[in-house]
Amino acid sequence: KYSDMIVAAIQAEKNRAGSSRQSIQKYIKSHYKVGENADSQIKLSIKRLVTTGVLKQTKGVGASGSFRLA
C-alpha cells in the first residue's frame, strides 16, 4: 500500500523539516517494486494522508513541498 510506503520513507529519512515528494519517490522506487504509475499514485496518496491528518505539510502547497508525520 502506497500510504504505508510513504510513512516508511518519511520515518527512514528522519529529517526535522520533513521529506520532499521527490525524496519520498526516490526511497519508494529503491526499496519497493512499484509499477510505472508510481509517481502519480504517490502524489495522490500524499494528498490523502494530509487530508486525513496522518501527514503534516511543512512547506509548499498540494503534493509539492515537504511533509512529516503528524
Rank of each mutant, 00 (worst) to 15 (best):
K1W: 10
K1R: 12
K1I: 10
Y2D: 01
Y2V: 05
S3I: 12
S3R: 09
D4K: 08
D4L: 10
D4M: 09
M5S: 02
I6H: 02
V7Q: 03
V7N: 02
A8E: 10
A8F: 05
A8S: 06
A9P: 01
I10Q: 02
I10L: 08
I10P: 02
A12F: 06
A12N: 07
E13W: 05
E13G: 10
K14C: 15
N15M: 05
R16N: 08
R16G: 13
A17N: 13
G18I: 02
S19Y: 02
S20C: 05
R21M: 15
R21K: 08
Q22P: 04
Q22G: 09
Q22D: 12
Q22L: 12
Q22A: 13
Q22H: 09
S23W: 14
I24G: 00
I24A: 00
K26D: 13
Y27L: 03
Y27M: 01
Y27K: 01
I28L: 04
I28H: 01
K29I: 08
S30K: 10
S30D: 12
S30Y: 06
S30M: 10
H31A: 03
H31R: 05
H31D: 00
H31F: 05
K33T: 10
G35W: 04
G35S: 07
G35K: 05
G35L: 15
E36G: 10
E36W: 08
E36P: 14
N37S: 06
A38K: 04
A38L: 12
D39V: 08
S40R: 14
Q41E: 13
Q41A: 12
Q41G: 05
Q41S: 06
Q41T: 05
I42Y: 02
L44W: 09
L44P: 01
S45V: 14
S45D: 06
S45A: 15
K47D: 12
R48D: 08
L49S: 00
T51L: 14
T51M: 14
G53S: 02
G53M: 03
V54N: 03
L55Y: 01
K56I: 15
K56L: 15
Q57T: 07
T58L: 11
K59H: 10
G60N: 08
V61P: 13
V61D: 13
V61R: 15
V61Q: 11
G62H: 07
G62L: 06
G62F: 06
A63G: 14
A63T: 12
A63W: 07
A63K: 12
S64E: 15
G65I: 15
G65Q: 13
S66A: 09
F67Y: 14
F67N: 02
F67R: 01
R68D: 04
R68K: 12
R68L: 11
A70N: 09
